[in-house]
């Protein structure tokens, strides 16, 4: 620059920079995921640990190899691949073979993230894109949940077929399910870390969970006539079961694939709640969080366009 010796820096905005970097945020998210991961390993044993290592390592490796091959700046130090890999691992059943998780990570990082331009450009959450890829490809293995050596239905499947579930064990997490989704306590611990450090705010998860609760409260009756309107136990069971807690706090709030406008975040949260409720109550399978989130991810550009705030002085009466 010609003016580099000038005392006054002439540059375009932003003039005030925050110390926060992508790497900081991703490290906090990784730390916040650790309670759920630790509980998953405690709950499901060694296979869960192998799965988590497999998904995380292959996510990082894929990113490294792709960026080396394409002569791009290697960005594995920003931890975003670690978060993707870890999230995918937490979304896998412990009984699935490890290579399945690795394949999912390769798909998530390569196709969903890097081919669209890397961090910040992905059209949907890479971990969820990968999970849906695996869910469609290997439906059998991805929906078989083995707990304590027996293959059993998840609480959501029990609920859907009209049975009753023990809400307390769902809060603690001693139930079959994917590695990271079972324990509401462990997930909430991570969520509190995220909220206290300011990484996420309550807008998206709050509207998501609230809309979902209202939806299930009303339409649960139509899916199963034995359930009354706004049956508190039924709603609690739905909120604690399946991947909704993990999805609402960790995946719906992904910066890249959620709206930046405040009104947009509320619309997005409500859309998530309605879609999840629709899929769970009236869809073919008992769980629908993954599909609800990736479909809403795809609608984010439209939501942002509609909810663009008006600059001061614009608009008003014509």
């Amino acid at each position: 620059m010609v003016l580099s010796e000038n005392k006054f820096m002439m540059s375009s905005s932003p003039h005030i920079r925050s110390k926060t970097t992508s790497a900081n945020i991703m490290q906090i998210v990784t730390a916040a995921l650790l309670p759920a991961a630790a509980f998953g390993v405690y709950n499901f044993g060694l296979p869960a640990l192998i799965m988590l290592i497999s998904t995380t390592a292959s996510a990082v490796l894929t990113e490294l190899i792709y960026q080396k091959l394409m002569h791009k700046k290697v960005t594995i130090n920003d931890f975003s691949a670690v978060v993707t890999g870890l999230l995918l691992g937490l979304n896998m059943p412990s009984s699935a073979p490890w290579w399945m998780g690795a394949l999912g990570s390769v798909f998530g990082i390569l196709v969903v993230k890097q081919l669209f331009g890397g961090l910040g450009q992905n059209i949907m959450n890479p971990a969820l894109g990968a999970r849906c890829f695996l869910l469609i490809s290997f439906t059998g293995q991805m929906t078989t949940f083995i707990y304590d050596g027996v293959s059993g239905p998840t609480p959501l499947a029990v609920l859907k077929s009209g049975g009753t579930v023990d809400t307390m064990s769902m809060l603690i997490g001693k139930i079959p399910g994917t590695i990271g989704e079972t324990s509401v306590f462990a997930i909430m611990l991570g969520a509190v870390i995220l909220i206290l450090t300011g990484v996420i705010d309550l807008r998206i998860p709050g509207t998501y969970l609230a809309t979902f609760a209202v939806f299930v409260g009303i339409f649960g009756h139509f899916q199963n006539p034995d359930i009354g309107f706004f049956d508190p136990q039924y709603i609690t069971a739905h909120l604690c079961g399946g991947g909704i807690m993990l999805g609402a706090w960790f995946m719906a709030t992904d910066y890249v694939t959620s709206p930046i406008t405040k009104r947009g975040q509320i619309v997005y949260g409500m859309l998530l709640g309605i879609l999840t409720g629709l899929f769970r109550l009236f869809g073919g399978s008992a769980e629908g969080v993954s599909y609800a989130i990736i479909i809403s991810n795809l609608l984010v550009p439209l939501i942002e366009r509609v909810t663009l705030p008006k600059p001061f002085g614009k608009g008003g009466e014509k």
Partner: peptide
């Protein structure tokens, strides 16, 4: 070999 079923479904065509 465990077939990756998604490739004979619609999304696989696009990929």
């Amino acid at each position: 070999y465990v077939p990756v079923t998604i490739f004979i479904l619609a999304p696989g065509a696009f990929l």
